[in-house]
Design a binder for these strands. Structure first.
Lengths: 221, 221
DNA sequence: ATATTCCTATACCAGCGCGTCTAGTATGTG
DNA sequence: CACATACTAGACGCGCTGGTATAGGAATAT
C-alpha cells in the first residue's frame, strides 16, 4: 500500500552478506502470536470492530510491537488474508487422481467443503467480503486461491471425462459451477447471515456425496 | 429495542378518538426521503461507514429531523431491512401457477434471480450479512422473506410433481435447495467479494433456464 | 390568534480507535 | 565492553461519529 518498504516485507537487507544486522533481532514468535491473535479476532468480529489494542492484548504484546511488525491495520489484515489464501491452496492442491470419476469428484468436494465450511475460513466468512471489497486485487487473489482454484480443477476433470465419453457436457466451466453449487447448497448464505455455524465432518461428507450424485444424474452419458 | 414507544412505530396515540393531534403534523415526505437516502447509502457502504450526518444531508434534512423520526441508527437500519424484506415478499408472491412444470419453475427462478441479482437488494449484499449478524431475529426474518420463502414454495411444487410421477425425488427440501443453488451458481459469492455487479435481464433469464434444465435432467422420471 | 408541534441550524459533549511519541529496559551483535 | 535494535508501558493528539441541547422560525389545528 505505501511506497516505502515495510519492515514486514523485507527482513533481509538487499545488499547484505547474509542475515547481518546489528542489534537485537526481531522476535518471530511474537510476530506469529500477533498473527494468530489477529486471525482469531478477525474470525469473530467484523473488520472495524477489531481494535489494534485488542490484537496486542490477545497476543500478549505491546501495541507498539504490533506497529513495529505491521505498518498498518490494513497491512496486518492483508497478511492474514494472504496467509489464509496460501493455506487454502495447500489444502486444495493435489486433487484425487485415482479411482473412478465419482470417487475423484467426491475427494475434491470433501476437501473443498472441509475448507470453506469446516475451518477458520468459514468463521471469516462475514469479515472477508466486507473488508476485501475495498481492495479488489486482494479479493481477486483470495477468490482465485479458493473457489476459483477448485472450479478450474473441476472444469479440467469434467472436460477430460467428457472427452472419454463418460459425461455429456456442453460447457465444462458451467458444469463445474453447477457441481460446486450443488455441494455448497444454501450453506454459504446461511453462514453469512450467522444462521449456521461450521459444519461437522459427517455433514460435509454427506453434502459432498449427495451433490456429486445429483450432478452425475444430470451429466452422466 | 427500547422499551419506550418510538414515534416511528406509533403515530396514533393509543386512547385517542382518531388521528387527532394539535400542532403541525409530521411531514411523511421527509420520512420517505430519509428512508430512500439511508437505503442508497447502506447499499453502497458498510453499516459503520454510513453516518447519520450523511443520511441527513442526502435526504436534504436536518440531523435532528432524522432523530425525530428514528430513535436510533439501528432503528433506521431496521426499518430499511424490514421494508426491503417486504418488498422481496411482494416480488416473490404469486408463483406461476400455469403451464407445465418447466415453465412454472422457470417463472419462479426468473423472478427470484431478478430480485437477488438485479435489484437494490443485490447492492446490499455486502452490508446486510455483516450488520444483521448482530441481530439474529432480524437476520432470520430477512432470510425467511427471501431465499427461505422461495425454497419453501419450490419444495411444495416439487413434492406435488413427485406425487404426480413427474419427478423422482427423495427429499423435496433438498431438491429445492439444489434447484436454487443451480440458479444462483457462483453469483452470490462473487457479488459478496465485489467481483461482480448486478446482472442484466438477459443474463438472469439465461441462468434461470439453464439451472432449471440441469435440475430437470437430474430429477426427471 | 394562539397554542402546539414540527423543522432547521448550530453548537456541543463524550467516547472511541488509530497511530505516534517518549523514556526506559531487554537482548542481541561486533 | 559498547552499540544498535527490539520491546514495554503509558500517555496523548487527533479526527470522527452518535447523540443531545437550544433557540428561533414555520406550519397547522382549534
Amino acid at each position: 500500500m505505501s511506497p516505502v518498504s515495510n519492515s514486514e516485507d523485507i527482513d533481509i537487507v538487499v545488499y547484505a552478506p547474509a542475515s547481518a544486522r546489528s542489534g537485537r533481532p526481531k522476535d518471530t514468535a511474537k510476530r506469529e502470536a500477533i498473527i494468530t491473535a489477529a486471525r482469531s479476532l478477525f474470525a469473530s468480529q467484523p473488520f472495524d470492530l477489531v481494535t489494534m489494542e485488542a490484537v496486542a492484548a490477545q497476543a500478549g504484546v505491546s501495541k507498539m510491537t504490533v506497529y513495529s511488525h505491521f505498518h498498518d491495520k490494513e497491512a496486518l489484515f492483508e497478511t492474514i488474508v494472504t496467509a489464509t489464501a496460501d493455506e487454502m491452496i495447500g489444502a486444495l492442491s493435489a486433487p484425487g487422481q485415482e479411482g473412478g470419476l465419482r470417487e475423484r469428484l467426491l475427494a475434491v468436494g470433501s476437501s473443498f467443503l472441509g475448507v470453506i465450511l469446516g475451518s477458520d475460513i468459514c468463521k471469516m466468512a462475514h469479515t472477508l467480503p466486507g473488508a476485501l471489497r475495498a481492495n479488489r486485487a486482494l479479493a481477486e487473489r483470495f477468490y482465485a486461491a479458493g473457489p476459483g482454484r477448485v472450479r478450474g480443477a473441476l472444469a479440467a476433470m469434467i472436460a477430460a471425462a467428457a472427452e472419454c465419453g463418460e459425461l455429456t457436457v456442453d460447457d465444462p466451466d458451467l458444469a463445474a459451477d453447477d457441481l460446486v453449487s450443488l455441494w455448497e447448497g444454501s450453506r454459504p448464505a446461511k453462514i453469512a447471515f450467522g444462521l449456521l455455524e461450521l459444519s461437522s465432518e459427517e455433514e460435509i461428507r454427506q453434502r459432498a456425496t449427495r451433490g456429486t450424485e445429483v450432478f452425475l444424474r444430470a451429466y452422466r452419458r
